[in-house]
Design a protein around this nucleic acid. Sequence first.
DNA 1: TATGAGTCGATACACTGTATCGCCTCGATG
DNA 2: CATCGAGGCGATACAGTGTATCGACTCATA
Lengths: 226, 226
Amino acid sequence: MLVWERPEPQERPAPVPLSRERIVRAAIRLADADGLDAVSLRKVATELDVRPMRLYSYIDSKDELLDLMVDAAYAEIRPTGDTWREVLRSLAESTRHTVHEHEWFADLLGGRPQLGPHALACGESVVAALDGVGLDAVMPAVGAVNAYVIGAVRREIAGQRAERATGMDEKRWQAELGPYLRRQFATGRFPALSTVVRDAAHLDADETFRIGLECLLDGIEARISR
Amino acid sequence: MLVWERPEPQERPAPVPLSRERIVRAAIRLADADGLDAVSLRKVATELDVRPMRLYSYIDSKDELLDLMVDAAYAEIRPTGDTWREVLRSLAESTRHTVHEHEWFADLLGGRPQLGPHALACGESVVAALDGVGLDAVMPAVGAVNAYVIGAVRREIAGQRAERATGMDEKRWQAELGPYLRRQFATGRFPALSTVVRDAAHLDADETFRIGLECLLDGIEARISR
DNA sequence: TATGAGTCGATACACTGTATCGCCTCGATG
DNA sequence: CATCGAGGCGATACAGTGTATCGACTCATA
C-alpha cells in the first residue's frame, strides 16, 4: 500500500520530557495548593500533560513518590550555627519553617524512615556540628530534638486546620469549638483542665514551640556536660 | 389479595443491633490486625454483618470513625504517679505502650486535635496531678512531653515497619538496608554521620525513648523550679 | 382507608492505585 | 532486504474507596 493511501500513524502528543524532579515538583505543587489528599498519580500526570502509567517508569509506587517529596523538603532544611545548641535549635526552627511552607510535610514526618540524600545530608551537617559532643550522646540528642519537632509541628498544623475548618478565622474557631469545650468544662468532669484553660496565659504557637524546645535543649545540655 | 397469595415481605436479615461502640470495636479489630489501611467503611460493615451505609447513621464521615478510634485508644492511657515528674513520665510511657498495642494509633497521633471524652479525661488527670506546678507552666510542660512522645513513637513504629518490610527479622534488615547505608557512607559524603553510626553505642528503642524523655523532664524541672 | 412525612439503605458515582497485556518499535538474523 | 523476536510503553481494566442521591417502604395521622 502506498504512503498516500496509508493513514498517518495516529498523531501522538509530542512526548513530554520527564524526570523524577519534574514529577516531584508537580506533586509538591499540588500538595502545597490543596493538601496531600490532592496528590494522586492521575492528577500529577495531568499536571505534567502525561498519561498516568508513564509515571511508573520513574517510581514503583505512590509511596515512593511521597518519599521523594519528603526528601525534596529536607533539601530546604539547612541547620546552621556555631555551637551544638545553636545547630540543634536551628534544625528545629528550620524544620518547623519548612512545615509552614509545606503543610503536607507534617503529615509525612516520622511516617517512614528518611534515608534520601537530602535527609542524610541534613543529618550529616547536624552530626558534624556536634563533634564536640561525646560520641554516644550525639544520636540520642539529635533523635530527641527530631522527635520533639515532629510531634510539635504535627499538633500545630492539626490545630491550624481545625481552626480553618470551622470557618477560616480565629473568631469563628472560638465560636464553634470554644462552646464545645465550655460545655464539656461545664459538666464539672474536668475541673483542673478547665481552670488551666481559663486562667493560664495563652501562648502563641511560636512561644509554645520555643519553650518546649529550650526545655529539651536544657535537658540535653545537662546530660552532655555531666 | 389474601395473605396466602401475597408473597412474604422479602426476608431481611435480622437487624443487627448497632452502636458506635460496636462499630469502633470492629474498626479497631481490623486496624490491629492489618493496619489502618485495612479500615474501610465497607470492611467494618462486613465485619458487623451490616450494609455500609448503615454506619452513616452513627458517624458523619470516616474521619469521625478515626476520631472515635483515637479516643478509644486514649481510654487505655492511664497516667499515674505522685509527683508531677512521675505523672508526665507515666503519661509518656503509657502512651507508648498503647501505641505498641495499637500501631495505627501512631499514624493518627497529632493528626487532628483530640477532644474526645477519654482524651480530655486523660488531660484532666495529668493536669490535676500538676497542681503543684505554676499555672502558666502546666500547659507548656504537658505540651512538650506530648510533642516528644508523638514524634518518638512515630519514628519508632516507622522503623519497625521498615524492618518488617525488608524481611521480617533484624538479620534481613541489616542485609537489605544496611548495605544501602554502607554504600552511601562509602561515598564519603557523610563522614560524621558514618562515624557516629559505626562507632557509637547502639541503644535499643526502650533506652532511646527513655533518655530523650528524661532529658526533656530535666529541662522542664529546671524551668519549673526556677 | 387514604395520605403524608420520615427514615433507611441499595444503588450509583467519581475517584483511587496499579496489574495486565496488546501493540508498536526497533534490532538482530536468515 | 524481509522476517522474526524481544522489549518496553502505556491504554485499558480491575478491585477497591468514601459518600450523595433518591426510591421504597413504614408508620402515624386524618
